[in-house]
């Protein structure tokens, strides 16, 4: 079975110079507010942060240029390396299960039907719950006599100190964020799935392809733009994740959940070493960009991105 999905690049629709000019004009017009916005609110602050990462700025006085000092210091800072390790672990632990789970839910849920409609709505409920407001409830859920221990008690596991055990605390955060983000991923994937051309599936079914084969050979490749989006968002979200650890564990126990953004926060706003914090942010930025590029490369598989 061969798939012929036409994905012409934007330039392919050009039917003449006038048309190209019209499209360029419309494109510029539509993108102009975004360009101005990103320039003022992100590029300028970003440039400021880059500059600060080469200075000793401590939230007061005139920053003095210190060259690569901050970056050199970073190499020998055990706090940084601990946080980098925690962040890497947290990213893998939260991205992989949540995307696999979201796919597993989204594929059956994307079929039409009244029940599925209701379930789609219910699955979004956690995503609509404010995290900051409900964080206190989560610390109650993970408390000694909380819901988490009640649930594992049902399957015969004794109570665990979720937030005060070095090996468990990170998983407690993973559970909380997966709960929060799953619905969002499901909905985005569902929207992507429902936008797929139904004819291809019918043809494959007529050819006698089983559901697993259809999923692997047709659904996944066709879904790759949506998947790419979800993956990039999930990875970046995990690497920048700050709120769960900030609210639930404050980085504890004994640094086990001190994700990099939390370390950055402590360095920048606790210790007021904004120059150093900026350097940490730049390293994080480069790591995330590199990862994004890899994801774009793997999932691009064509002319778009």
């Amino acid at each position: 079975m061969t798939l012929t999905v036409r994905l012409p690049g934007p330039a392919a629709t050009v039917s003449g110079r006038g048309q190209r000019w019209a499209e360029a004009r419309a494109g510029s017009l539509l993108a102009l507010p975004a360009a101005v916005y990103f320039l003022v609110f992100w590029v300028v602050p970003f440039a400021g942060a880059v500059w600060l990462s080469f200075t000793d700025y401590e939230l007061a006085g005139v920053p003095a240029w210190t060259g690569l000092d901050n970056y050199r210091r970073l190499l020998g800072d055990p706090g940084f390396w601990n946080s980098a390790r925690v962040t890497a672990l947290y990213t893998v632990a939260s991205v992989v299960p949540s995307i696999v789970l979201a796919l597993a839910i989204a594929v059956p849920l994307s079929r039409p039907g009244r029940v599925n409609g209701v379930l789609r709505a219910l699955v979004m409920i956690p995503a609509a719950m404010p995290l900051v407001a409900t964080s206190m409830v989560w610390s109650a859920i993970f408390a000694d006599e909380g819901l988490a221990n009640t649930l594992i008690g049902l399957v015969g596991i004794g109570p665990r100190p979720w937030l005060t055990d070095e090996r468990l605390a990170l998983w407690a955060l993973v559970i909380m964020t997966t709960w929060k983000h799953l619905g969002l991923f499901v909905i985005i994937l569902t929207a992507g799935l429902q936008g797929l051309p139904s004819g291809v599936f019918e043809a494959a079914a007529i050819d006698g392809a089983g559901p697993v084969r259809i999923f692997a050979r047709i659904t996944l490749p066709l879904l790759r733009r949506t998947l790419l989006f979800v993956l990039v968002i999930a990875v970046i979200g995990a690497m920048q994740s700050f709120v769960p650890a900030f609210l639930l564990t404050k980085g504890g126990p004994a640094g086990a959940t001190e994700v990099l953004p939390l370390y950055l926060w402590a360095t920048g706003f606790g210790f007021e070493r904004m120059g150093y914090a900026s350097a940490i942010a730049m390293v994080l930025l480069v790591a995330m960009l590199a990862l994004s590029l890899v994801q774009f490369g793997v999932l691009r598989g064509g002319d778009d991105g």
Binding site: G27, A31, F46, A281, L285
Partner: peptide, 27 residues
């Protein structure tokens, strides 16, 4: 829509996505 600066803008968008909001708070 092909328009001048499209690639740059998209690069900025992806870059922004990866920029820590904490560090741009003060700027």
């Amino acid at each position: 829509l092909p328009f001048p600066g499209r690639r740059v803008l998209f690069a900025v968008v992806v870059g922004t996505l990866s920029l820590s909001p904490i560090v741009v708070l003060v700027p």
